[in-house]
Each structure stands twice: as C-alpha cells, then as structure tokens.
Amino acid sequence: MLGTLIIVFREVIEAGLVVGIVLSVTRGLAGRMPWILGGIAIGVTGALLLAIFAGSIASALEGIGQELFNAAVLSTAVVMLTWHNVWMARHGREIAAEIRTVGKDVARGSRSLAALSVVVGVAVLREGSEVVLFLYGVALSGHDTVIAQITGGILGLVLGAGLSALTYVGLVAIPPRYLFAVTGALITFLAAGMAAGAVAFLEQAGVITVMTDTVWDTSWLLADSSIAGRVAHTLVGYVDRPTGMELVAYVAVLAAMTLLSRLFAQRPAAASLSGAAAQ
C-alpha cells in the first residue's frame, strides 16, 4: 500500500504543481476556470486513451513512438508557456493593476488561457497515463491486497493534490505587485526543464546522438528518484545527471524566453510616443 501511495503521489505532484502554478499565474484573468478545468478534463481523458493505446504508441515508428510522443508533448508545452510569458509581458501590468476588477477583458485574456489550458492538459496527460497503467496493473494482479493498493492510490492522489494546493496558496499569498514577476520566473524554469526533458526522450530514442555525455552527477546530494528531487525536477527542471544537450536545451529556452518577453514587453511610455510617430 505504501508503494502504491508513493508512486501515485509522485506522479500527481508532478502534474499538480503545474496546475498550481497555472492557477496562480492566471489569477485575475476572468473566465479562467473553464479553461483550466477543461485542460484537466482533456488531460484525464487523454491519459485513459493513452493508457489503452500505450502498446501501439510504443511500437509505432520503429519502436520509438513513445519517446517521440513524449518529446512532442513536452515541446508543445514549452511553446505554450513561452507564448504565455510573452503575452504576460505585454498585459501583465494591466492585469496587476486591475486584479480586483474581475471580468475586465475576457476576450483578450482567452488567448493566453488557451495556451495554459494546453499546458495543464499535457501535464495531466503524461503523469495521468502512468497512474492509470500502474493502477490497472494492480487491479489485474487480483491479489487480496488490491483494496489496500487502491486505498494507497487514493491516499497518494489526495496527498499529491494537497501539496499542489499548498503551492497554490503559497503563491497567491505573494502580493499582486510581485506575483507576476515570481510566476513569470517559475514558468520560465518550468519550460526550460520541459525542454531538457524533451531532449532526454530524444536521446533515449536514439534521435539525438551528440553531446549525450553526462556533465555532472549530483545524485548523492539530491536524487531524481526522491520526492524532493521530483519536485525540483518539475519546478526548475532539476536532473541529477544531465547530458550536455539537455543543458544546451535548458539554457537556450531560458535565454529565449527571457529575451522574447523583453522584446515584446510593453513599456509605459510607448502609448504617447506611437501617437507622436504617427503624425
């Protein structure tokens, strides 16, 4: 039962932390709940489908279908997170100012919400399918411990959701003035970690074969397999033995997102000047 609890807990916090961050990021955006809940619902449905078709996906494309699928899913999330941060760089100031006036501009906010909805969906999809496969296996084994295992699974789910909720509460306790700076940084690290994850899957598939040497080993300090390691992995993309190419992807996404957000940031003086330039 404890084993089941830990496995489910581990998968749930990975998806849950992403949902928690997205919830805090979208604070003040009207109509966010349908998008986020929609993302979760699509993720859960997708996870069930993914679990059913796990075999055929795995054997697709000369046996590397699963790796390519995972890499594609992660890359999609990276693009969506980048898009959101760029959008936030443009409109974050207004939202921070209007955070109390709910329902100000649904139409404008929905673009970014759609992007984050996809991010929530893929996070739930990936971790959810593992939970489904695992619990299905437990149910199949038909031992007399099945009830205990299912109980463990449910407890893991509740604990994982609880930890994610705490993250959310912690994040929204940050004053609005700083909230977007903090969540913007969180999203950037989240995306960089996902990009490195996509590279790891491509290395595993044998698609990327250059710079695959391990750069350092900090497993003695914080192991990937530990709960703390998992949380660090989800939040900032921590890997105890990263390869060269993973580091390249990580730094590249970090730099690209920072640069794009700067590039598209709306400066306060811009409005008056564009008027002058038009004359």
């Binding site: 699963q66 496969l133 595993q204 598939a205 192991a223 033995r241």
Partner: peptide
C-alpha cells in the same frame, strides 16, 4: 499481463512497456 515502466536514473531512461509486448531502449 500488466504494463511496466522500465526506469533507470543511472541510465537516464524511462519507458512504458505495455502488457504482452516489447520495447527497445537506446542507451548511449
């Protein structure tokens, strides 16, 4: 009869192998 995830932090791989099937894992 159940799926399994081949998992190794040392080898830096994780792959789900469906029940009654096989999967190839590339190691550097």
């Amino acid at each position: 009869d159940a799926a399994e995830e081949f998992d190794s932090d040392d080898l830096h791989v994780e792959k789900v192998i469906a029940a009654k099937s096989s999967g190839t894992i590339h190691i550097k």
